[in-house]
Amino acid sequence: MELEKPHPVPEHSLAQPLVQLERVEKKYANHTIAVQDANLLVREGEFISFVGPSGCGKSTILRMIAGLSEPSGGNLQVMGGTADSARKSGRLAYVFQDATLMPWCNVLDNVALPLELKGISRKQRTEESLRVLELVGLKDYSKSLPRELSGGMKMRVSIARSLVAQPDLLLMDEPFGALDELTRQTLQQELLGIWSANPRMTVLFVTHNVFEAVYLSTRIAVMTPRPGRIVGQIDVHTSVPRQEDFRTSPQFNELASRVNAVLRH
Rank of each mutant, 00 (worst) to 15 (best):
F205N: 07
E44L: 04
Q124G: 09
S257M: 12
Q97F: 08
G55N: 06
R131A: 10
S150L: 12
E134W: 00
M223R: 14
R125S: 10
E212V: 04
L179M: 00
P53W: 05
C105D: 03
S158A: 15
S144L: 02
Q36A: 10
G80D: 14
W104P: 02
L21W: 13
G137T: 06
I48S: 02
E244C: 00
S196K: 10
E128V: 01
A221P: 00
L113K: 07
G119N: 10
R229G: 09
V24R: 01
M223I: 14
I194L: 01
N39V: 12
I65R: 11
V95P: 05
I120C: 13
G55C: 09
A197D: 13
L133E: 07
R43K: 07
V9W: 07
H208I: 10
F252Y: 13
S142I: 01
L216K: 08
G55V: 02
E116R: 08
D245V: 11
Q189V: 05
A112Y: 00
A213H: 04
S142W: 03
I234P: 04
V203D: 02
R43I: 01
A93H: 02
A86G: 09
E190M: 04
T238A: 08
D180G: 14
A86E: 03
K58A: 05
V42K: 02
M223Y: 14
R161F: 12
T218F: 00
L149N: 14
A213L: 04
C105H: 03
M172S: 11
W195A: 06
Q188W: 04
L21A: 15
A165K: 06
A29S: 13
H208C: 09
G137Q: 08
R43W: 00
P10F: 02
R125P: 00
K118L: 08
V222Y: 10
A66C: 11
S196F: 04
V210Y: 02
R247P: 09
F252P: 05
V136M: 01
G193W: 00
S89E: 07
S142R: 05
S144V: 03
K58R: 09
D235M: 08
H265D: 13
T126E: 15
W104V: 06
D245C: 11
V78K: 05
E25Y: 08
E127H: 10
V9S: 14
K88C: 04
V107C: 01
G80M: 12
